[in-house]
Amino acid sequence: MLLARIDRRHQLKWSLMAICVALEVSNPAFALDPASIARSGNGDAATACSSCHGDHGEGLPDNGFPRLAGLDSRYLRTQLEAFASGSRANEIMHPIAKALSSDERQSLASYYSGLIAPKAPQQAVDDDKLIADGKSIALDGIWNKGLPGCSQCHAKLGLGVGASFPRLAGQSSTYIGNSLAAWKDGSRGNDPLSLMAGIASKLDQSQIDAVAAYYGSLPVDQPEGKTP
């Protein structure tokens, strides 16, 4: 009887300790800090983010690796979840996002959202006509195809709105074009209300090129690293 009671006490003690250990592990303060994951990876399949997204989250434009600096943290977090679950299908980001714990996804999202970075150098599209066509789609839309201007959701100059409408200013034309193509072919399928799937389906390739060239040409001199 006595023995049994001690045993039970022991059991309790051990399980309390186990809970403590579990808590420690999932405690963000205990997990690797985001800056070091960004720089050198998490020791698992999540390799250094900076090798593709740049030292300051500015992206690698010509490779289509997006800018992360200054994007809304809730948006970045949602995208990491979507890469992990596969609802945003991407061969590169899927294993990386899957290897991040939930806390790491959150802390990396906050980390990149708070970074300030100049626009990464990229091959400029020097086709004024193309950029002008893109600007007209971005600001006025093509209403007889049921397409509003992009700026009506992404704000003027592509500054973005809140948690769900990402900033486009600062992204490269390659990445903008890739994203629109990904919605058209269905590999990017996590957009709320399927808004972007609908938008992309109304654009043909020459219009995608134009609107991508326009957004690629925008500066990043707006309030940065700010989550409204």
């Binding site: 009506q152 209300l193 409204p228």
Partner: peptide
């Protein structure tokens, strides 16, 4: 389900970081 994403759960709309009302 269909409106709050843009107009906000409180119906107050949403602004871009430069203070322009977008929704």
């Amino acid at each position: 389900q269909k409106c709050a994403l843009c107009h906000g759960a409180d119906g107050a709309g949403q602004q871009s970081p430069d203070g322009q009302t977008v929704f």
